[in-house]
């Protein structure tokens, strides 16, 4: 390395220094600190007390901890397939050259770029038991007594899930749309000439060709489902009786409402391991497939 190269290298180091320092101070250090805090009983204003694995035991075995984990799984079990299938279906619908399709693409994408809190408040009005439009519609059809969409423990989590599926589907649609653009159109034309119907084309050509994108969408949807927070705080506050409290929301509650930083950190690491595990599984599966 000559003097000029060394000089350029020095400049490069100086250029990335602020970003690196920021990354170390505001990302890496808090991550490492949270790992240490997860073994302590700490309310921010007091002195941390070492409690070993107590916080992990509470997060994984206490009745509330188990409920939160089950809610998170239940949320993901509905959100991921629903958002993926709807995103894919919408992508197929708007992947045409007909007039006005750009309008519909924009329309379906709009909820995604709308603030979650605004979306949640609008849905909250629609979900209102006595005066909400959903129950008014059901009543008009004589289908059901008013449903407490946000207060019935059997329905509340599903309601939150539906709102987030409605909001995020447009994003997954765009991802699938990008995948569809990469498919060789001659394959589809050839299949049509061979007499394949629309269903067969989707099943035998589009879906296999979209496999990498589908993997990606499922992964992103799973990660998003584990992080859900804004819709929960705006719609249900985690209620009724924690029926809609998922891991992301429980971390917020424990950290910034109850100031139980130890438990919140332990739950964060559980969440990190879950998301990391899913990502690893996804990576392995994709490697095996390729």
């Amino acid at each position: 390395m000559n003097a000029v190269q060394r000089h350029h290298l020095r400049i490069a180091w100086w250029m990335i220094l602020p970003c690196t320092v920021g990354l170390l101070c505001f990302r890496l250090f808090p991550i490492l600190a949270s790992f240490l805090i997860s073994f302590s009983d700490w309310n921010i204003i007091g002195i941390p007390k070492f409690v070993g694995l107590d916080n992990y035991v509470e997060a994984l075995t206490s009745p509330l901890g188990v409920k939160v984990l089950l809610n998170t799984v239940q949320y993901a079990a509905v959100y991921v397939p629903l958002a993926t299938i709807l995103g894919f279906s919408l992508a197929l619908l708007v992947d045409t050259g007909i007039r006005g399709v750009v309008f519909f693409r924009t329309l379906y994408f709009l909820p995604f770029i709308t603030a979650t809190v605004a979306v949640a408040i609008s849905w909250k009005w629609m979900f209102a038991t006595r005066f909400g439009i959903l129950n008014a519609f059901l009543s008009w059809l004589h289908l059901s007594d008013p449903i407490a969409w946000l207060s019935n423990p059997n329905v509340a989590l599903f309601s939150v899930t539906v709102v987030m599926v409605w909001k995020d589907t447009g994003f997954y649609m765009v991802l699938f749309l990008a995948g569809l653009q990469t498919i060789d159109r001659t394959l589809i034309e050839a299949a049509k000439l061979d007499g394949a119907n629309r269903f067969a084309i989707v099943k035998d050509i589009i879906l296999p060709q979209l496999a990498p994108m589908t993997f990606f969408v499922v992964l992103i949807a799973m990660i998003n489902s584990a992080k859900t927070f804004e819709a929960t705080i705006s719609l249900t506050n985690g209620g009724p009786n924690n029926a809609s409290t998922t891991l992301g929301y429980a971390i917020y509650q424990n950290a910034f409402v109850h100031f139980d930083m130890g438990l919140a950190s332990a739950q964060s690491w559980v969440l990190c391991l879950v998301v990391g595990g899913i990502s690893l599984l996804h990576y392995r599966l994709q490697q095996r497939k390729s």
């Binding site: 029926a243 509650q253 109850h258």
Partner: peptide
């Protein structure tokens, strides 16, 4: 200490004593 946690208050109003009493008031 930790009143908001067991009572169910503010962002945790859906839980604790508040959540349980709501279940009673809702007839569940």
């Amino acid at each position: 200490p930790n009143w908001s946690k067991w009572r169910g208050y503010a962002a945790s109003a859906g839980g604790g004593m508040n959540g349980e009493l709501d279940k009673v008031l809702n007839g569940r």
